[in-house]
């Protein structure tokens, strides 16, 4: 997967019988200091890892739905890269939760029910390519989600938990890229044709009702923030607002005038979109109990 030298393939010979690459996807937390400070509540830490991990996992599941359906092949590659980044973050965070709880990333991803998932609603709703949206809605969600998560991970690089700090440091680079990708597309869709502008306005209106939930702290987040482990999401609001206003301003758009809907994802209360999403994600794993993959 890695291209240390982007053009090595042009200058090196090819060995016909050689399987050139390892798969490189094995150890979600290899090389990271995994000690848990004695002053941190283990259950809280595991739950917090699930919150951030589920956000990434469920959203990656949604993004991967675009595979082979993007408006152009180049965009197919870009969306898959973003989904892979988030899936990587999810694996590290679920692995961390798993080692605290005596289980593993796959048991957590495949054997929990909807009420045990702690992701925000913004990650789970259908923003396209399903009937719930389109490419503009998808870019609206990517903009809001990545602006929020980038602000969050940026602060989390100073976490007292070494794993969270390491995941955040890697994630900041990735999310910077995601946020920029979304911003570029919001500019183009808003400033493209009359139709694309209409779609962009409509797309923002789909995701905006889920904005408030992103800044509502769960009691676990409160407690861990006080311990210097987590980030209190309420503190992110002004930074995220300012990023969103900058992008919308450059695109000549205004904030949608829509009411908020109730959140509750952090506590396991989800939208109707969640059960079918999980049913599909978990179907093979659950159909073959004891299977090894």
């Amino acid at each position: 997967m890695s291209f240390d030298n982007a053009y090595e393939s042009l200058v090196e010979g090819h060995e016909e019988k050689h399987w050139a690459f390892g798969t490189g996807f094995t150890h979600a937390l290899s090389g990271v200091d995994r000690a848990i400070s004695s002053t941190v509540d283990r259950d809280d830490l595991a739950a917090y890892c699930l919150m951030l991990g589920d956000d990434a996992l469920v959203y990656a599941q949604r993004l991967a739905e675009w595979c082979a359906k993007a408006p152009e092949l180049e965009e197919d590659v870009a969306l898959a890269n973003i989904a892979l980044d988030l899936l990587g973050q999810a694996r590290m965070l679920l692995s961390r939760a798993g080692e605290i709880q005596g289980t593993d990333e796959d048991a957590l991803a495949y054997l929990r029910d909807s009420s045990e998932f702690r992701n925000v609603h913004l990650a789970e709703i259908d923003c396209g390519p399903g009937p719930g949206g389109d490419f503009a809605t998808t870019m609206a969600r990517l903009l809001v989600f990545s602006a929020w998560r980038l602000a969050l991970l940026h602060r989390l690089t100073g976490s007292a938990d070494p794993v969270l700090a390491a995941v955040a440091a890697k994630g900041v680079k990735e999310l910077t890229y995601h946020r920029d990708h979304a911003a570029q597309w919001v500019l183009r869709l808003a400033g493209g044709t009359d139709y694309s502008r209409e779609r962009m306005v409509a797309g923002l209106a789909v995701v905006w009702p889920h904005l408030d939930e992103l800044f509502t702290a769960h009691p676990i987040e409160h407690r861990l923030a006080e311990a210097g482990v987590a980030v209190d999401p309420a503190e992110l609001r002004s930074e995220v607002d300012s990023v969103l206003d900058t992008v919308l301003g450059a695109a000549g758009l205004t904030r949608p005038d829509v009411a908020s809907v109730p959140g509750g994802g952090r506590g396991g209360v989800h939208t109707e979109a969640m059960a079918p999403l999980l049913a599909e994600m978990q179907v093979v794993a659950r159909a073959l109990p004891g299977g090894v993959w």
């Binding site: 996992l57 796959d106 495949y110 794993a285």
Partner: peptide, 8 residues
């Protein structure tokens, strides 16, 4: 992809 039985 949506149904792959492990995250890896």
């Amino acid at each position: 992809i949506s149904r792959a039985p492990s995250l890896r």
